[in-house]
Nucleic acid binder design. Structure first.
Lengths: 338, 338
DNA sequence: TTGTATGCGTTATCAT
DNA sequence: ATGATAACGCATACAA
C-alpha cells in the first residue's frame, strides 16, 4: 500500500507529529527538518489519507450541491460556477441530483450522505411552506433561488419577481397585449415558478391588462421538450397570442421551435422571451430575449455564505437573504415592434 | 455532537459490533436485536460517520469524474448520466473540472484529491503519446472518449472515426462537395478532435474528394462562441462552401448562427452537421444533423468498468476498449438536397 | 448469534 | 522546535 506518515517520519528520522506539521504548513518547523521531511515525502511518494484526516479533524473538506439535474443547462452552468468558487477555497464539490422531485429533495436533506460533507448548497425546485421544519438540519445549509420559507435558513436568491416583471414590461412596451405564459409550477410551492409568475402578472396589472388563464401553457418540467408541448397545445386550442414568456429559457426555446414549425414569425408575429440567460439563447435563431440572473454571483455568494458558517465566522443573521441583481437582455426574439 | 455507534449500542444494550452488523445488513442478526438496535438508531437519530467507516474500510464509496467543464452541454449531459449510474451502485460522484487544459488534466491525475475517492473516470480533451506514463496511476482509472495511448489503461470510447465518417458520407450523398471543417485540435493530441477529423477525411477520400485546408476553421475550444468565430473567419476569407461539419454540436450551432446572420440558408445554401447529439440541436432552427454517440451507454460502461476494478472482479484484460455504437441522426440542417 | 480487542492514519494535547 | 500518546468512530479478526 501507499506510504503513511509513520513511514515518512521513520525515513526522515522525526516523529509523525513533525511530518504532520510540515504537510500542514505549521509555522514552527526548522528549515532543516522541513526539507528533510519533504525529501522523504517525495522519495516515498507519500499522499495524505483524507479519511484519516477527516476523522481526526471532524470535517471533510467537501460540500454537497443538490440540483434538479445537470442536463438542464441552467443547473449545469450553475454547478460549473459553484465548483469553481469552492475550488478557490480549497473545497471539493459533490453533486447530488434530486430530479426536482419534491420527495427526493426532502430526502437529500436528511440523507446519510450529508455526513460525508461539511455543508450543503441546495437548489430546490419548489419547497412548500410545510417543509420549513425539514430545513432545520444540523449542518450548514444555504438555499438557492428560493424565498426563505420561514427566515431561519440562509439563502441566495435571484430577482425572480423583478426579473419577470421587467420582461413583461418590455413585451408590453413593444406593443404586445396577448402574452402567453409557458410553464407552470406546483401551486403549493414557493419557488421560482410562483415568483416569476407573480412578477409577470404584476406587470400586466400595472399596465391595466388582464392575463387570460387560457393563455397559460401548463407544464411542470421546465425543459425544451415540455415547452414545445405546451406551445403546441396552446396553438391547437386556437389561443390568440402576440408574445410568449417562458418561465425559463428552455421552455422559451422549446416554444420558439414550435412557433417556427407552425409558420409563425418571431418576433414579427409572436415575440418570445425567457429567463436564465443560458448559453443556447445567445445563439438561437432568433436569439432569445431573457433575464440574466447573475449565475456567477449566485454561486459565489452561496459558497461564501456557506464558508462563513463552516469557519464559524461572526454569525450572520439567520435567514439572511442575499438577492443578486438581475439584468434584462433584449435580443432578436423580441427585437422589433409589430 | 451527533450520536455514535457506542451511544446506540449502549441504548440498545448491545455491543458496537452488533450495531455495526445491523447497519451493514450483516446476515446473522436475530430479529429481536435488530429491531432493538433500529429503534435505538431512530431514537438517537444516529447517522454513520463516513470518515470513520472509510478509514476503517480503506475505501471511500466515492468516485471522481474529471471533465473539461460542465458548462459545455455534452459534458453536463455526460456527468448527469455518470451520476445516475454511480448512484445506482451506491457510489457518490465528485466532479472535477480540468478546463480542458492539458497541464491541469495531468495534475488531476496525481492530485491529493485522488486519495478521497476510490477511482477516477477521466474525460481528457487531448492526451498526447508522451503522457502514457502519467496514466499509470496507482488507482482504478477509466478513460473516456480516448483511444488508448498505450493499451495499459481501460477506456470507453465512442465511435469517433466511424461517426464522423458517416456524417461526411451523408453530406456527400446529399451532393455536397465543398465541406468546411469547423474546429481543430492540438495536433500532438490523440483525442476526439483528431479521430473525428480522420473519419471526416477518410469519407472524402473514399469519395474521391480532396479537403482544401482553406476550408478548415481553426478553433481550439469547442464552444458555440468559437464555432461562430471560426465560421465568420471562413466567410470573411471568401471560402466557398456548401456544407459545414462541426467537430461537435456546439461548434456547429455557433457556425449555423453565423450562416443565418450572413443570410445563407441552411440547408439550401449550406448544410450543417455536428457531433454529440446534445439537446439543443434537436430544438435548434433548423434542427441539427448529428451523431448520437451513446452518452448513456458510455456513462454506464465507464461506471461498470470502474466498479469491476473496485470490487476486484475477475481482471479484465488491461487496456480493454469498450466502443459504444453510434447513430447518425439526420435532421433539418442537412435535410434536403440542393 | 454476539462480544472483545485491536488497528485504520491523522490531529491535538501536553510535555520537553 | 519537536516528541509521546491519546483520541477520532468504525470494521474486523478472533473468541465466546
Amino acid at each position: 500500500m501507499s506510504a503513511t506518515m509513520r513511514d515518512v517520519a521513520r525515513l526522515a528520522g522525526v516523529s509523525v507529529k513533525t511530518v504532520s506539521n510540515v504537510v500542514n504548513d505549521f509555522p514552527h518547523v526548522s528549515v532543516a527538518t522541513r526539507t528533510r521531511v519533504l525529501a522523504a515525502i517525495t522519495e516515498l511518494g507519500y499522499q495524505m489519507n483524507f479519511s484519516a484526516r477527516n476523522l481526526s479533524r471532524g470535517r471533510t473538506g467537501m460540500i454537497a450541491l443538490a440540483v434538479p439535474r445537470l442536463r438542464l443547462p441552467y443547473f449545469a452552468e450553475l454547478t460549473d460556477e459553484v465548483i469553481v468558487a469552492a475550488e478557490a477555497r480549497g473545497y471539493t464539490v459533490l453533486v447530488e441530483q434530486t430530479g426536482g422531485v419534491h420527495e427526493r429533495e426532502l430526502e437529500v436533506l436528511g440523507s446519510d450522505r450529508r455526513r460525508m460533507t461539511d455543508g450543503l448548497i441546495f437548489s430546490p425546485l419548489g419547497l412548500r411552506p410545510g417543509d420549513a421544519p425539514r430545513l432545520e438540519v444540523g449542518y450548514p445549509l444555504v438555499l438557492l433561488g428560493e424565498r426563505a420559507l420561514h427566515g431561519e435558513v440562509h439563502h441566495v436568491s435571484m430577482a425572480n419577481v423583478a426579473g419577470a416583471r421587467s420582461v413583461a414590461e418590455h413585451l408590453i412596451a413593444r406593443g404586445r397585449r396577448r402574452i402567453a405564459l409557458v410553464g407552470s409550477y406546483d401551486e403549493r410551492g414557493a419557488g421560482a415558478g410562483s415568483l416569476r409568475t407573480q412578477g409577470f402578472l404584476s406587470a400586466l396589472h400595472a399596465a391595466g391588462l388582464e392575463h387570460d388563464p387560457a393563455r397559460t401553457g401548463e407544464t411542470l418540467e421546465w425543459t425544451r421538450a415540455t415547452g414545445a408541448e405546451a406551445m403546441r397545445a396552446l396553438l391547437d386550442r386556437g389561443v390568440e397570442i402576440d408574445a410568449v414568456f417562458g418561465l425559463n429559457d428552455a421552455l422559451a426555446l422549446g416554444a420558439m421551435r414550435v412557433l417556427f414549425e407552425r409558420g409563425l414569425r418571431v418576433p414579427d408575429d409572436v415575440a418570445v422571451a425567457g429567463f436564465d440567460d443560458i448559453e443556447d439563447g445567445r445563439f438561437a435563431r432568433p436569439s432569445l430575449t431573457t433575464v440574466h440572473p447573475g449565475r456567477a454571483e449566485i454561486a459565489g455568494a452561496a459558497v461564501a455564505l456557506l464558508m462563513d458558517r463552516l469557519s464559524g465566522a461572526p454569525q450572520r443573521p439567520a435567514g439572511e437573504e442575499v438577492v443578486v441583481p438581475h439584468r434584462l437582455i433584449v435580443r432578436e426574439s423580441s427585437g422589433q415592434g409589430h
